[in-house]
Design a binder for these strands. Structure first.
Length: 109
DNA sequence: CTCTTGACTGAGG
DNA sequence: GCCTCAGCCAAGA
């Protein structure tokens, strides 16, 4: 088993999969847990490959709880529907009760 | 190697 | 509260 499976991208996917049901996290939080607090953009960039994978990318939003990556989903409001399906309130592409559903890997793990 | 692009973030006006 | 600027890091051309 090579380290190829533990690339920055793979790590991002791993954390994303660890996000509990009905919870969300931010790119910065994942990056911070990976030791790259300034690589939040890389986290999002890595999620580009999450398409087709079992990675709940819809649970990953920016620090403001805004669904910035919704444009990368198939539908227009697919990401929002997925979050609402988990009990997360989303209005205007933004999570309302963000503080309640926010999940920080650095603290929970 | 250099330049561009990006699903980000924080600070300043 | 909204807009703009700069810093950040990795991958692709």
């Amino acid at each position: 088993m090579k380290e190829e499976t533990l690339n920055f991208f793979e790590k991002v996917y791993e954390i994303a999969r660890l996000v509990p049901y009905g919870r969300v996290t931010s790119y910065g939080a994942i990056g911070n847990y990976l030791g790259a607090p300034r690589s939040a953009r890389m986290v999002g960039y890595a999620m580009n490959g999450s398409s087709g994978k079992e990675v709940p990318a819809h649970r990953v939003v920016n620090r403001k709880g805004l669904l910035t990556g919704k444009h990368h989903f198939d539908g227009t409001n697919l990401m929002q529907q997925l979050l609402e399906s988990e009990g997360i309130k989303v209005v205007n592409n933004q999570i309302q009760n963000l503080e309640e559903v926010y999940w920080d890997p650095s603290k929970e793990l």
